[in-house]
Design a protein around this nucleic acid. Structure first.
Length: 558
RNA sequence: UGGGGAAUAGUUCAACGGUAGAACAGCGGACUCUGACUCCGUUAAUCUAGGUUCGAAUCCUAGUUCCCCAGCCA
């Protein structure tokens, strides 16, 4: 596909409309975007929306997208996060090529521009304490007051800034502020801070600096240095745009980027806030950043969500300026959509119920053929061993079934997938009255699953051989939060106590012990699963990525 | 009560003065060796009130509701 074709196929959101118009008007030769994470946490699905937008737009319009770390605050940034972010962006399917940058790459230039602003009388060093600054900033409805240090001479400001840089003052002693308008309705324009003193070691610049630029001061100028054409960010930065523009207009920057804002992603039953996700990890509410219940890319990956599903999801939700909350069900749809096409089929019994086939000769076994993917003959088939004793799913048997229950019950005949028709003859219970075993008979004429006499069964159920299946632990994940709109301010109260369900006694068909560990599989009639890295020889662990759509569950509930 | 934004089916997004459309969800049906997949059908929306216009979701006016901003976080 040529880039013209790609551009035509590009989505129809307002960002792409703007870019299309800019290109047609000749305002830019090409489009350059950037994804600018701060390395203070792991990326989550909300970032995936931004990554797909920035990299997607660049690709569609034949431009490029930079990965730039917004590493201006060494007190909360770590190398671990830098590594994780690079890994996650790559995993999502995007490549920044040689365009890996850091705001810290520009510290020297940013500093030079700070002196430039001082010389132009547009910045000054303020000695007020943090409390004094807060008090003089005014409120949402009242204007602020000018700092008593606002009219220092250029020489004094230059001297103080240089000594700030040299590390002569303790943290918090002074800041460099832009001289804009303490009476502005937009609080971001009330002499914002450009530099603060931070005696902290930076992952990249070490202890070379004792002052660090603020986001507002660093971001736009970094964009300009990289010749970013469209600087796409989220809605909360909308009222920073006048400040973004002020710096660009008052500094001799090499290009003229423009900022555009879109609504960040919100998803039901989860919280997309780095602060909350960090607390979930640090507070031990989850096992780590890659806990499969986490909406982090690392968590989704471990859960078995394919990157293609995330990209599909992002395409479906669109890009707009209205705050919204996307139904988690839509993500699940995208996951099933991709996995249904790609995942090989296997049989696994999550909650085993033993079945003895009374008329099947003792000691005899045989091999039956099962398709790896019924809709994709190219995927081939594997052979599975059948014998006198098998396991079926407990949920597939009911002693006193309601009318619409098609599966096994006393006297009822069903098909064992790829095997035989069996009929339930007897129910064996323990002293507590619990069903512990089913005695069934099979029809040898139905080998492979078809009756020569053409008779039908209402249900086909999955099974595994008792002798040949392998034990496994299966982890079922439910929503991390019990409410569709958990309170980020008090998230612990809304946690779902049943977000993790461990099934310790599952039985898998043996192929699953040998299959390529990273491949997703469908456990027939149940859902999509993947092997968890916790697996060890002799102890397999599988994660449920997402269940199959379950119409029966709805019928049963009604 | 300052500044900045946003309001269209249950949800998310289109429609850019000319028949309000899609996806997901829902409902009904067909098919089926997965109660899956697939296919068919179907319910369902322009925040309110005025105005401009032959014609308004779209333009104007007034209002309503919701979101963001008072870090030396990003």
């Amino acid at each position: 596909m040529t880039s013209d074709e790609k551009a035509r196929e590009a989505g129809q959101d307002f960002i792409r409309d703007i870019i299309r118009a800019d290109l047609e008007a000749g305002r830019h030769k090409g489009v350059v975007t950037r994804f600018p994470p701060e390395p203070n946490g792991y990326l989550h699905i909300g970032h995936a929306k931004s990554i797909c937008l920035n990299f997607g737009v660049a690709e569609e319009f034949g431009g490029r997208c930079h990965l730039r770390f917004d590493d201006t605050n060494p007190t909360r940034e770590e190398q671990e996060y830098i590594d994780a972010i690079e890994r996650d962006v790559r995993w999502l399917g995007f490549d920044w090529g040689k365009h890996l940058y850091h705001a810290s790459d520009y510290f020297e230039q940013l500093y030079a521009w700070a002196e430039h602003l001082i010389r132009a009388g547009k910045a000054y060093v303020d000695d007020q304490s943090q409390e004094e600054m807060r008090a003089s900033r005014g409120t949402l409805t009242e204007p602020g007051r000018n700092s008593p240090f606002r009219e220092r001479t250029v020489e004094e400001n230059l001297d103080l800034l240089r000594r700030m840089r040299a590390g002569e003052f303790p943290n918090g002693a002074r800041v460099l502020r832009a001289k804009i308008d303490m009476g502005a309705g937009n609080i971001n324009l009330r002499d914002p801070v450009l530099y603060r003193i931070l005696h902290a070691s930076h992952p990249r610049t070490g202890t070379a600096w004792s002052i660090y630029p603020s986001y507002d001061y660093a971001h736009g100028q970094s964009d300009a240095i990289e010749h970013i054409t469209h600087s796409i960010c989220t809605l909360e930065f909308e009222d920073h745009r006048p400040l973004y523009d002020w710096f660009i207009e008052n500094l001799p920057v090499p290009s003229r980027p423009r900022q555009y804002e879109f609504a960040r992603l919100n998803l039901t039953y989860t919280i997309l806030s780095k602060r909350v996700l960090t607390e979930l990890v640090r507070g031990g509410h989850v096992q780590g950043w890659d806990d499969p219940r986490m909406p982090t890319l690392a968590g989704l990956r471990r859960r078995g969500v394919p990157p293609a599903a995330l990209r599909d999801f992002v395409k479906r939700i669109g890009v707009a300026k209205a705050n919204s909350i996307v139904d988690m069900g839509l993500l699940e749809f995208s996951v099933r959509e991709v996995l249904n096409r790609t995942a090989l089929r296997r049989m696994a019994v999550l909650r085993p119920l033993k079945v003895v086939i009374e008329n099947y000769p003792e000691g005899q076994t045989e091999e039956l053929e099962a398709a790896n993917h019924p809709d994709a003959p190219d995927a081939g088939a594997r052979r599975i061993r059948f014998g006198r004793e098998i396991f079926v799913e407990r949920d597939d048997f009911m002693e006193n079934p309601p009318k619409k229950f098609y599966r096994l019950s006393p006297g009822k005949e069903v098909r064992l997938r790829y095997a035989y028709f069996i009929t339930c003859r007897e129910v064996v219970k323990n002293a507590a009255g619990e069903v512990v075993e089913l005695r069934c008979t099979y029809d040898p004429a139905t080998r492979g699953g078809n009756a020569p006499d053409g008779r039908k069964v209402q249900a086909t159920i999955h099974w595994v051989s008792a002798a040949d299946s392998v034990p496994a632990e299966v982890r079922i994940y439910n929503q991390l939060f019990a409410k569709p709109d958990p309170d980020a301010g008090n998230f612990a109260a809304d946690l779902n106590p049943n977000s993790l369900e461990v099934l310790a006694d599952a039985r898998l068909e043996p192929a699953l012990a040998g299959d390529n560990a990273s491949e997703p599989v469908q456990f027939e009639r149940q859902g999509y699963f993947c092997r968890d890295p916790d697996s060890r020889p002799g102890h397999l662990v599988f994660n449920r990525t997402v269940g199959l759509r379950d119409t029966w569950a709805k019928v049963a509930k009604a």
